[in-house]
Design a protein around this nucleic acid. Structure first.
Lengths: 130, 130
DNA sequence: CCTGAGTTTGACAATCATTCTCAATTCCGG
DNA sequence: CCGGAATTGAGAATGATTGTCAAACTCAGG
């Protein structure tokens, strides 16, 4: 029942801190192996899920529907992302506007416990040249 | 290069029209078989992708990252969804507010060609009882 | 109503992400 | 330091999706 701190969980947290942007479980697993860590793929998956449940990481899905993770910058705070479709650069954004809009639309249709996923994609300044 | 009309494409379009809500390629495939249609699973996948590219169907991803499809009610129009997390009932919504917000946020960060995905989840009136 | 070139199909293999299994190992409160 | 609960890991299993390629089909032209 209680959650334990293990070497594996520490190193997963560590890579997440060390790298920028979003990465899949597979990618993170490979990075760990490259760093010489001994850890199983299943453990990486389980750990990421655990972190996600505790809002310790950001989760989103790439265009292929794969889960990608990133250490949460505004830990625990709800926010969204603006990602460059060319270089993958990601900016964290928050939007009182949309939050309010989401709640309102939900309420209008009699829905409660509204949650939402909002992701923006575009081409960043750097990638517009070239 | 040219797109042909085939029996298979017709029946896929037909089930999409016949059923409500979003369904995975697998589900649609099974419905077709149940209807006595002769069609291959790969064909269902290919057909759905084709339809999606032509904006003839709505695509979204469920919580597991699987692609789910629905015949496009407001054909070709850009819109979003409000889905009941219990019964899967889905309502189509549009939001000038968020559209504008998305563009503005993108521009603020120097991003162009902004696209976005927005999905709302909640509990519908019916599912709140019980 | 034929025909041929180009499309599309389907059975099945192949990928690939993710989850499951379960014995062996590791944590940690007492 | 101990014991039981939590966690791990190797590999199998699952399941969605895509690739392969010969056979079947469509349709514009004759």
């Amino acid at each position: 029942m209680s959650v334990r701190m293990t070497r594996q969980r520490e190193v997963v947290a560590a890579v997440l801190e060390a790298v920028d942007g979003f990465h899949s479980a597979q990618e993170l697993y490979e990075m760990l192996l490259a760093d010489g860590e001994r850890i199983g793929l299943a453990t990486v998956y389980r750990t990421l899920q655990l972190f996600a449940e505790n809002n310790m990481v950001d989760v989103m899905r790439n265009a292929d529907g794969e889960a990608i993770y990133r250490s949460c910058i505004s830990a625990g705070e709800h926010h969204h992302h603006l990602m460059c479709r060319t270089c993958g650069k990601t900016i964290e954004i928050d939007g009182p506007t949309v939050e309010a809009w989401a709640l309102q639309v939900g309420a209008q249709h009699g829905f409660t416990e509204i949650e939402h996923t909002i992701e923006l994609y575009g081409t960043c300044t750097a990638c517009q040249r070239g």
